[in-house]
């Protein structure tokens, strides 16, 4: 008999998240699908329904969407699991990024460095816009959410000193207004 399951849930978490950390090109959302497959189908850590719930929590809780990994660790092995999963998911990619930043910085000012940057920066910007769309698609957001995001971006462009909290508050208000109007039946 193997004793894998009792060996250590921590090792199991690391064996899933460390490799994914290093292939998450383009950011956290690019590995959400493989994380789901591992957590639900391969390791049987949770049901598909539980995974969707965790995904929703990770989206609204503070921090990047990849806190998904932290919550899976928590489900599997409590607080220790949460910390192990967080480190396994973020530390390997961060060390790689630090190494790349060092090299990148060393050649600052060279002609080819400027060309690389001018060539890559537009891709970063294109992915930034794509990321916004991807979040809304995953969350199945309606026109109100889209309009709100565009409104916030426009306000910050027009008044860069405006505090984001005010705009996040507007978001909460608008969605509650919609809730109220939907219940009062005006739209029917």
């Amino acid at each position: 008999m193997r004793e894998d399951s009792s060996l250590s849930p921590y090792l199991a978490l690391m064996s899933v998240f460390v490799p994914l950390s290093l292939v998450a090109i383009g950011g956290g959302p690019s590995i959400f699908a493989p994380i789901q497959k591992e957590a639900v189908d391969v390791q049987h850590w949770m049901s598909a329904r539980e995974f969707i719930e965790i995904f929703a929590v990770a989206r609204v809780a503070p921090g990047p969407g990849s806190m998904l990994g932290t919550l899976i660790g928590w489900k599997v092995a409590g607080w220790g699991g949460a910390i192990v999963a967080t480190l396994a998911l973020f530390l390997p990619s961060s060390i790689l990024c630090l190494a790349v930043s060092k090299v990148w910085n060393r050649y600052r000012g060279r002609e080819w460095h400027a060309a690389l940057e001018m060539g890559l920066a537009p891709i970063g910007t294109g992915l930034m816009f794509s990321g916004a769309i991807a979040i809304f698609r995953m969350a199945d957001a309606g026109p109100l959410a889209w309009g709100l995001a565009v409104f916030v971006a426009a306000m910050l462009t027009w008044r860069p000193r405006m505090h984001p909290f005010a705009l996040l508050g507007v978001g909460a208000l608008v969605f509650n207004l919609e809730l109220y109007l939907a219940h009062s039946g005006i739209f029917r």
Binding site: A153, A172, F175
Partner: peptide, 28 residues
């Protein structure tokens, strides 16, 4: 009501990143 707050804040937060896209576009 809490649920609507959460959804509204999350939607507005996407706007913060959209703003960075706008800054990147201006740089281009």
């Amino acid at each position: 009501v809490l649920h609507a707050c959460v959804d509204g804040v999350a939607a507005a937060a996407v706007g913060l990143n959209l703003r960075l896209g706008v800054i990147g576009t201006q740089r281009i």
